[in-house]
Design a protein around this nucleic acid. Structure first.
Length: 292
DNA sequence: CTGGTCTCCTGATCGC
DNA sequence: TGCGATCAGGAGACCA
């Protein structure tokens, strides 16, 4: 499931193929993966029968635009053209963006862009948790609602984001308005690396713990990017290549197996509706832990 | 306002 | 070998 490292790997792999290209034609095969200005917020509400999709000019989907930049904040990728129109890609769980000369669409392709060099950019998403958000004035306004980017998070900024919430630290880390880019996999990995129990109340973290956590988040995400991300099910970069970081996971997906640091059996619990794996020895449950 | 739960979706995997 | 049940989870809606 794509998180920040997968989005960044995708950005880097697509950038050389897309910069300077002009979009000749856009084809929408499924309207309901697009959130246009004026549409309800997206996600779940897209599916409601009582909401009618708003019409929008194809220019907002980059038609006849020349692609000028690919930027990322957290897990989201923005493709912006020379007019300043942006399409913000949310990959969700199974979303993918590929650029290829092949005329064959991958399964579940919902939107395609014909480029002026004969290649085709495609957005596909089997499970449709992903979406394309149209941002006529660029991604800045939408991204201002998100927390700081996790790849460069500083201890002071992280601590500041956590001091006023009584939620478990893991729930806070998964909230994109608190910290942008961390999902279930890397939350577990970073908490283990920082030796912090996932159920600790966020506001109870001390300065040195926030420092350790910020460093762990940056390190885990950087390491994952250097491995091309984690391919858990079907993640691929812009050229269709899988990542390999999944073999480096130290806790995610390893419940019941020995902790690679101390040998204790890793435990599983549910936090924020997410499967959570941690080491009961390396990440001791403190008095300030929330009930799991 | 805050935090917890529900819901969208379907491929992969498991148990019989 | 086949098939129904279960699991996975990003994030907005919804509710106490």
């Amino acid at each position: 499931m794509p998180e920040l490292p997968e989005a960044e790997t995708l950005r880097r792999s697509l950038e050389p193929a897309l910069l300077g290209r002009t979009v000749e034609r856009v084809t929408v095969r499924r309207r309901d993966v697009i959130v246009a200005p004026g549409d309800p917020a997206g996600g779940f509400s897209r599916q409601r029968a009582d909401t009618k999709p708003v019409r929008f000019p194809r220019e907002l989907l980059l038609a006849h635009g020349r692609i000028e930049s690919l930027t990322r904040h957290g897990k989201q990728l923005a493709i912006t053209d020379h007019r300043g129109h942006a399409v913000i890609v949310h990959l969700g769980m199974t979303g993918s963006v590929t650029c290829a000369a092949s005329p064959k669409h991958p399964p579940h392709t919902h939107v395609t862009w014909q480029l002026d060099d004969g290649s085709t950019l495609r957005f596909a998403d089997a499970r449709r948790f992903g979406l394309l958000r149209l941002a006529p004035d660029g991604p800045a306004e939408h991204w201002a609602r998100l927390g700081p980017d996790a790849l460069t998070i500083r201890a002071a900024a992280l601590h500041g984001q956590l001091t006023d919430t009584l939620r478990p630290i893991k729930a806070a880390m998964l909230d994109q308005h608190v910290l942008a880019g961390v999902g279930n996999i890397y939350a577990d990995e970073a908490l283990h690396a920082a030796a912090i129990h996932p159920a600790r109340i966020a506001a109870s973290l001390h300065c040195d713990e926030a420092r350790a956590l910020a460093r762990a988040v940056r390190r885990v995400l950087s390491a994952a990017i250097s491995q091309g991300g984690s391919t858990i099910r079907d993640y691929r970069d812009g050229s269709g290549r899988p990542g390999s970081f999944q073999s480096r996971h130290r806790v995610y997906g390893r419940a019941g197996l020995p902790c690679l640091a101390c040998g204790s059996a890793l435990e599983r619990c549910l936090l924020a509706q997410r499967t959570t794996v941690f080491c009961p020895n390396c990440q001791p449950s403190p008095r300030t832990a929330a009930p799991a």
